[in-house]
Amino acid sequence: MPASRRSVMLGLAGLTVLAGCTAPAPVQAQWGRNTVPDFADLAEQVLPAVVNIAVMSEQTTTQIPPELRGTPFERYFRERRGRQQVQGAGSGFVIDPAGFIVTNNHVVGNAARVVVALQDGTELPARVVGTDELTDLALLRVEARAALTAVPWGASGSVRVGQWVLAAGNPFGLGGTVTSGIVSARGREIGAGPFDDFIQTDAAINPGNSGGPLFNASGEVIGINTAIYSPSGASAGIGFATPSDLARGVIEQLRRDGRVERGWLGVAVQDVGDEAAGGGAPGRGRGVQVQNVERGSPAARAGLRPGDIVTALNGERVETSRALIRSVAGTPPGQTVRMSLVREGRARELAVQVGRRPAGAG
Rank of each mutant, 00 (worst) to 15 (best):
A144L: 01
P282V: 06
D96F: 05
V128M: 04
W153H: 08
P282E: 10
V142W: 04
S232P: 09
P194W: 04
F77I: 09
H106F: 02
D96Y: 00
R295Q: 13
Q87A: 15
L148C: 08
A167M: 09
G82V: 02
R160A: 14
R5T: 15
F77A: 13
Q353E: 13
T135R: 01
V114Q: 08
D132G: 08
A236H: 04
T62K: 15
A167E: 10
E252L: 06
D197V: 02
S230Y: 03
A147N: 10
T103C: 08
T16C: 12
S232Q: 11
V290A: 11
A126D: 07
P2E: 15
V128A: 10
G92T: 04
L313H: 01
P358Y: 00
T336G: 11
A144T: 06
A281P: 06
A323M: 00
L254Q: 03
V183C: 04
S218A: 11
R338K: 09
L134E: 14
R343N: 10
V290R: 03
T336Y: 00
L304W: 00
E220F: 00
G212E: 02
P332K: 02
T71W: 05
P37E: 07
I309Q: 03
Q85E: 12
I325P: 00
A49T: 01
V108E: 01
A19P: 15
I205N: 00
T226W: 05
P24W: 01
A300N: 03
L137R: 05
G32N: 10
V221T: 08
A13F: 05
P298I: 08
G169W: 00
E58P: 02
I182A: 11
E294S: 14
V250R: 00
G176S: 09
A185F: 03
A126N: 01
F93R: 00
E74T: 09
S235Y: 04
A150M: 05
G208M: 02
V272M: 06
N110Q: 13
A351F: 07
R262M: 04
E252H: 01
R127G: 13
A227D: 04
V178S: 02
G279W: 01
A234P: 11
L10N: 12
A150I: 00
R305N: 12
Q119V: 12
N104H: 02
D120H: 06
T331F: 00
E58K: 14
G212V: 08
N34E: 11
G345V: 04
G176C: 08
G307I: 07
N105P: 15
A98D: 14
V290D: 07
A25L: 12
V17F: 13
R305S: 12
R348M: 14
L68Y: 11
V51S: 05
E220S: 07
L313S: 06
E133I: 12
R160F: 05
P332G: 10
L214I: 03
G296D: 15
D136V: 06
R343Y: 07
V114E: 11
T320M: 04
I238N: 01
A347H: 05
V250A: 03
A268M: 10
G92S: 07
V114R: 03
R346W: 07
E123Y: 03
R259L: 10
V165K: 05
Q119I: 10
G130Q: 02
G175C: 07
G287P: 04
G237T: 09
